[in-house]
Amino acid sequence: YVPMKFYDSLRTSDRSKQELQNKLRNFLENLQKNLTTSTLLSGLDTSISSTQNHFLKLQELSTFFHDASETAGLFARDSEIFYEVTKNSSYALLLKLRQVPMAQPTEIKILLTNYFAEMEFFHIMFSEIMDEALEYTQNVLRAIQKVFIYYADAQRYILQDWNLKPNMVCCKMYMDFLQLYSAQIFKCAADHELNIAYDVYAMAETNAKYIMRQLEFRIQRLFNCFLFKSYQIRCQFLLNAEHDFEKLFSKLEELETYFDIKT
C-alpha cells in the first residue's frame, strides 16, 4: 500500500546526500596539504611547478566551490521532495483506509470512526514533525549553497577581472589568502550544522520507513478484519484505538525530542 514514489524519492534523496558527502570529504585536509582540490576533482598530481599551474589550481578551487554549491542544492531539493512525498504517502494511506467497506454493523462503524480519528491525528503530528526536520535541513543546505556559490563567484571575478600579476610571489600570496578563507568558510558553512542536518535527515528517513510499514500493516489488518467478517477475533484492535497507536505516538515523541536536542 505504500506508494512506490515514497521509495523512489528516498533513493534519489539518499544518492544526493551521498554525492554531497563524497564531494566534501577530506576537503580541509587537501586544502591544508596544497591549496588544491585537484585530487578531489580529477585525481591529478598536485605538485606546483609553474605560475600556470598556480592559476589552474586557483580556477579548480573556484570550480570546487561552485560544484559543491550545486550538489548541496540538489540534496536540498531531493530531500525536500522526500519529506513532501513522505507526508503525502502517509495521507494516501489514510485515504486508503477510508475506502474500507462502510456496510458494517453500527457498533463497528463507531469503532471505525474512532480509529480513523486516531489515525488522522497521528498523521497530523507526523507531518508537523517531518516539517520541523525539513525546515532545519533546508535552512542549512540552502545556506551552504548560497555561501559556496558566492565564494566561488568572488574567486572567479577576481581571476577574470582583476588580472593577477603573473609572478610566483603574487600567486603564492593570493593562494595563501584563499587557503585561509577557504578553510574558514568551509568550517563555518559546512562543518557542525551540516553534520547535524545529515543526522536529522537520517533519523527522519529511518523513522519514516518504520512508520510507513506500521501504517501499511494497520491497513492490511483492517482489510482482513472486514474481509473475514470475524470481528470478535480480527477486529479486537478497534476496541481501543488509542492503545493501538500508543507505540507509534511514542515513536513520534522520541523523534521530536531527538530533533529538539539536535537542532
Binding site: 555561501v147 588580472n163 593570493y174 589568502f177
Partner: peptide
C-alpha cells in the same frame, strides 16, 4: 555571516592588493 560583506576587498592586505591590475 560566513563570508564578510566586503570580501575580498576588506580582507586583502595592501601588499596582496598591489598584485592586481584592478
Amino acid at each position: 555571516d560566513c563570508l564578510p560583506k566586503d570580501f575580498p576587498h576588506g580582507q586583502m592586505q595592501k601588499d596582496l592588493k598591489s598584485c592586481f591590475y584592478f
